[in-house]
Simulated scan of single mutants.
Amino acid sequence: MCLLLIAYRQHPHYPLVMLANRDEFYQRPTAPAQPWQEQAITAGRDLEAGGTWLGMAPGGRVAAVTNIREPGTPEPPNAQSRGEIPLAFLSGTASPVDFSTGLEGARYRGFNAVLFDHKVGAALVCAGNRHQPFALTPGVHGISNGAADAPWPKVTRGRESLAALVAELPEQLDSEHFVAPAMALLADTLRAPIAQLPDTGVGRPMELALSSIFVRIEPEDLAGESPISLAGGYGTRASTLVAVHRDGSTHLWEQTYVDGQASGRLRHFSYPPT
């Protein structure tokens, strides 16, 4: 249950700027973002299922996936991990449109996948199995665990904050003017007013706990009022920034968290221009 904030063609030098929080069970084994030895990608790794939630590849390719919150919906037979979707895109050469067209959505539980390749015309596409693939228009977008740009409080708040941040960015992204304020944006723990919460079938206490940009939930927070078990705790495990320059150079910054607290140093990776 994550959040993607995307500024597409809103900066003269960076056609894609993406901010993301990955929310997951604290006990799910995960490796932080790093270059993969067996494939030319840089991404975090889900050690349980083997895929990733967000990553980049040389040539200005970026992919991310979020699940769709739909409790009670039957799983497809032999459901595959949604983490294999961004991995397959990053490992291949298909354009976002072609990859989306060939994606067998019925194999997965509900998802949105954002696919970017700076070398092609329809560079930014949102694929999914609850809608037809579509190209995202230039602008600031947000995707959580529903439809793209759904007016959930965290999506609306995140889009507004990212739009303000991008408007002040210098020609070259740096730590002071981009990385630090973007990470602060992703660390926002403000929960939404009750009246603004969506109703996605998880109960009011859970909707409230998930309404902040940065999520931290302990089992006792829900007082047994949620249909979803959060044994061991649940929340934001990683905050990630991605920026693709118009020359094809690509940058990724990541901060990981343990039990809601920053763990280790902020990591930075990059690929050269193409």
Rank of each mutant, 00 (worst) to 15 (best):
A63W: 08
A163T: 06
F178Y: 08
G232Y: 05
I41K: 06
P205R: 07
V120G: 08
G105S: 10
V215T: 13
G92C: 10
P151W: 03
A147C: 15
G139M: 01
E254F: 06
G142P: 11
G92V: 03
Y257P: 00
E207Y: 05
P35C: 09
S144R: 05
E104S: 12
R22V: 06
A243S: 13
W152S: 04
L210P: 11
G264D: 01
P76D: 07
I85G: 04
R45M: 07
T156A: 10
V215A: 11
S161R: 15
R130T: 09
R130F: 09
A167G: 15
T42M: 05
Q39T: 06
E104T: 13
R130Y: 10
L185E: 06
N112K: 00
T52C: 10
T42F: 00
L19V: 12
Q37A: 13
L136I: 06
Q255R: 15
G248M: 07
R107P: 07
R267D: 14
I68F: 10
F269V: 03
Q80S: 14
P58Y: 02
A79M: 10
R107E: 06
F134R: 10
G203A: 11
I143G: 02
D174E: 09
V120P: 13
P227D: 08
V202Q: 05
A195L: 12
S239H: 01
P15E: 00
L47N: 10
E84R: 12
G260L: 06
M18T: 04
Q34T: 01
V155I: 05
A148L: 14
A150C: 09
V202L: 08
G102Q: 13
N78P: 00
R9A: 12
Y14M: 01
F178G: 08
G264F: 01
K154F: 02
G232K: 03
A106I: 12
Q39P: 02
L197F: 00
F99V: 02
Q172K: 14
G224C: 04
D46L: 03
R191N: 09
I6P: 02
L186S: 01
M206V: 05
F111H: 05
R216I: 09
S212V: 04
G105L: 09
Y271T: 15
P86H: 02
A182E: 06
P138S: 00
K119Y: 01
T156I: 11
A148K: 06
I85R: 03
W152M: 02
L173Y: 08
A94S: 07
T101W: 13
S211Y: 13
F89W: 13
P219L: 08
N21P: 09
Y14Q: 00
F269A: 09
R109C: 13
Q37K: 08
A135T: 12
Q39R: 12
I213T: 15
R157Y: 10
G233N: 05
T200V: 12
T137H: 14
V17K: 04
P193R: 01
F99P: 08
G224Y: 04
L103S: 03
L210G: 11
E225M: 11
R159P: 14
